[in-house]
Simulated scan of single mutants.
Amino acid sequence: MTTDSNTAGSTPVSDAAGLTDEQWRAKLTPEEYRVLRQAGTEAPFVGEYTDTKTTGVYRCRACDAELFRSDQKFESHCGWPSFFSPLAGEAIIEKVDRSMGMKRTEVLCANCHSHLGHVFEGEGYDTPTDLRYCINSISMRLEEA
């Protein structure tokens, strides 16, 4: 599902999990809160899962929903973990993001509406889809198989 918004970046995303902003701040570290709830971005090439090849399922760090599988992960050399497909179409929400002076597609957890990253298409990667889900490591945790 794709929705349209002009408010990515510093505005907290809406909450489908029913938690207040205060509850999210108590549950998450300050950096997790900045990325997951305020649509921030972690620095490139520093994330925990950028180069991970471990087999398992990537879950939303905010609500534990399943998002991606390790067999959908690929090396894009962009500085963030990249996937060619989410676990299931219902696992994420895609939202038009017009922040930063450009039009991008933001990726949110469908369960709690936390910011995960962005998806890009048409970049020519040799994957089954022509998509690159560029996801912040801090937005996920890996459950090893």
Rank of each mutant, 00 (worst) to 15 (best):
Q23F: 05
E90P: 03
G117E: 00
V57R: 12
A145L: 09
P128G: 10
L67G: 03
V96C: 02
I93V: 15
A145D: 15
Y133P: 01
E90W: 00
I93W: 07
A110S: 12
I138G: 10
D4R: 11
D15R: 09
Y125G: 10
L36D: 01
G124P: 10
T3A: 08
C63P: 09
R61F: 14
P81N: 10
P86A: 04
H115F: 04
T2V: 07
F83M: 04
L87S: 09
C63Y: 03
L19H: 13
C109K: 00
D51M: 02
W80H: 06
R37V: 01
M1Q: 13
S10C: 08
P128N: 07
G40W: 11
C60Q: 04
L108V: 03
L19S: 11
R25N: 09
V96I: 03
T41G: 02
K73E: 01
H77E: 13
V13W: 06
S82D: 00
R69S: 13
F68L: 06
V13P: 07
V57A: 08
D97V: 01
S139P: 03
M1F: 08
E90H: 03
D71N: 14
V107A: 07
E143A: 11
R34W: 09
G89L: 01
S114M: 05
P86Y: 04
S10F: 14
G56A: 05
L36V: 02
E121G: 09
R98G: 02
K95C: 11
N111W: 00
V107F: 07
I135L: 12
K53R: 13
L87C: 03
K27N: 06
A91L: 03
Y49K: 00
S139I: 01
V96T: 10
C63F: 09
I92F: 01
G79N: 07
Y33M: 14
G101I: 04
E31M: 13
L87K: 06
I138V: 14
A65M: 03
G122D: 12
K53T: 15
T29R: 03
C112I: 00
A43M: 14
T2R: 01
A62Y: 08
D51Y: 13
V46L: 07
L28F: 04
V57E: 12
S85M: 06
R61A: 15
S139F: 11
M1C: 12
E48M: 05
T129K: 11
E42R: 08
E90A: 09
M100G: 10
E90R: 01
Q72M: 04
T127G: 06
A26L: 12
T20A: 09
L142R: 03
T55V: 12
Q72T: 13
T129V: 14
D15T: 13
R132G: 04
A17Y: 10
E75M: 05
E106W: 01
T127W: 07
E121K: 15
L67S: 05
P81Q: 07
A110C: 02
I135K: 08
Y49L: 05
A145P: 00
D64G: 05
R69H: 12
Y133D: 00
A88Y: 02
G117K: 04
F74T: 04
H118V: 02
R37W: 15
W24G: 02
H77M: 13
D130N: 15
L87I: 06
F84E: 00
P86R: 00
V46A: 13
G89C: 02
V107R: 00
C109S: 04
